[in-house]
Design a protein around this nucleic acid. Structure first.
Length: 406
DNA sequence: AAGTTCTTACTGACCACATAGAATG
DNA sequence: AACATTCTATGTGGTCAGTAAGAAC
């Protein structure tokens, strides 16, 4: 473990990473911050990567005895390297206010978990994301605590050595497909919109010419939780994706000359959104024309409905879940079988990626948490009707105790 | 079809205060 | 030029009032 300090107290060694807060925290501050209110308790956290100490670890290398984020794992265990065969174990995310004993249970490989007692007012204990052999399920459905990125990242990283998972084709070359389970596949879950993530056994996804090398590895962190870096935007910039040149500017959808057979036409985003299409949800805000300007919140609502099982996290994070998912899905035609005929021509995709990267550099950032410390303080500040009150004055809402003074 | 009422969704202002950054000594 | 101190502007989240749009009658 590297010696990065807690973003909150700046004193203790950080051990866990909270995606919602984009902060590395020691266990003590993790407990304090995430017991502040019901919302913060739903933040999903994971161990910090031992290698880069800046990203959440998703896998434990049993050979190196190190917790690694997706990026470090993929870099360190690249196909063809001597470390490629290392046995690895998925690291679970958690939410709530777990005690040190509970953390020890899910992170049995970590020997030095400090003794941290759960907050007395934290009635909600640990909620752990679990990985099943056939996919992923969330045991805490009642809490509405699903988190797409935990599920995606956890499953993506699980069992790299034994890629015998069910396979569903992908036009992105390989990787992750987000597919709504058929009713008969959702045994044990009551939510028919549960998303099952399937890891494809195509190890060529790491190859030099793979789209992934361009799209994920060298440009951004592979982890889905880095969607903000990947797309350089939060949900608030969703409209930006649709205005300007629109989403089309990222993935070629222009009509091409009939004679140009090397430039395949991609499906319109609205039609290519496999999840929304298959969810059976109507989407009044989205018409066939992808350039239609959708009011931001309406667009988010529609997308959220499509991912109704994934509305946990904080206000920003949950919507971002939907955004990135839909973008990923919109960027690829659904349900295509693997192989050359199912993948997008490299030239078109490369140009799209080039444009994406250029636009990413130009993009402006609006709403974004710039100071985690300020957010942390605002999260625990007493209020009257939502307004901050002076210390010592009467308040009607205390995020820490969730009690009202009158 | 036109007008009124009701419902729903969305936006921006408000508050205290720690702190980043600028200004000054 | 380098450092210390003081001052100013900024950012943070929950709630509410105001507004707009759509539905119902």
């Amino acid at each position: 473990m590297m010696g990065a300090l807690c973003d909150f107290c700046g004193e203790q060694r950080s051990m866990v990473y909270c995606r919602s807060d984009a902060a590395s925290l020691c266990l003590s501050c993790d407990r304090n911050v995430h017991s502040a209110n019901a919302l913060s308790r739903r933040h999903t956290r994971s161990l910090l990567c031992d290698r880069c100490a800046s990203q959440p670890a998703t896998v434990r290398c049993l050979v190196e005895n190190a917790s690694l984020c997706q990026n470090c794992d993929w870099n360190g265990h690249a196909t063809g390297s001597s470390a490629a065969g290392h046995k690895r174990q998925t690291i679970n995310c958690y939410s709530g206010c777990p005690s040190s004993a509970e953390l020890s249970r899910i992170w049995s490989f970590v020997s030095d978990i400090p003794n941290v007692a759960p907050e007395p007012n934290c009635e909600q204990g640990i909620s752990m994301m679990s990985i099943s052999d056939s996919g992923v399920s969330n045991q805490d459905n009642a809490a509405g605590d699903n988190n797409l990125f935990d599920i995606v990242s956890a499953t993506l990283m699980s069992d790299l050595d034994t890629c015998d998972k069910p396979f569903v084709g992908s036009s992105l070359g390989a990787g992750v497909n987000l597919l709504p389970l058929a009713p008969d596949q959702t045994a044990g879950t009551e939510d028919s919109t549960t998303i099952k993530v399937l890891y494809t056994p195509d190890k060529d996804m790491f190859s030099k010419d793979s789209i992934y090398e361009d799209f994920c590895v060298d440009d951004v962190d592979l982890a889905f939780e880095n969607y903000e870096e990947l797309f350089g935007t939060s949900h608030i910039q969703m409209e930006q994706l649709f205005d300007d040149a629109g989403i089309d500017s990222y993935f070629e959808v222009k009509e091409v000359p009939a004679g140009d057979s090397t430039e395949p036409k991609l499906m319109q985003p609205a039609n290519s959104n496999a999840v929304s299409a298959d969810s059976g949800m109507s989407n009044p805000g989205v018409k066939g024309d992808s350039s239609v300007c959708i009011p931001p919140r309406q667009a988010r609502s529609s997308l959220s409905l499509s991912f109704s099982g994934f509305t946990g996290e904080s206000s920003a994070g949950d919507h971002q879940d939907c955004v990135v998912s839909s973008l990923l899905l919109m960027g690829e035609p659904p349900w295509q079988p693997p192989g050359p005929e199912g993948s997008i021509a490299g030239g078109s995709r490369d140009s799209a990626l080039t444009r994406y990267k250029e636009k990413k550099k130009r993009r402006k950032f609006d709403k974004k948490i710039r100071y985690a410390s300020r957010k942390a303080r605002a999260d625990v500040r007493k209020r009257v009707k939502g307004r901050f009150v002076k210390a010592g004055e009467a308040y009607d809402y205390d995020p820490l105790s969730q009690t009202r003074s009158y």
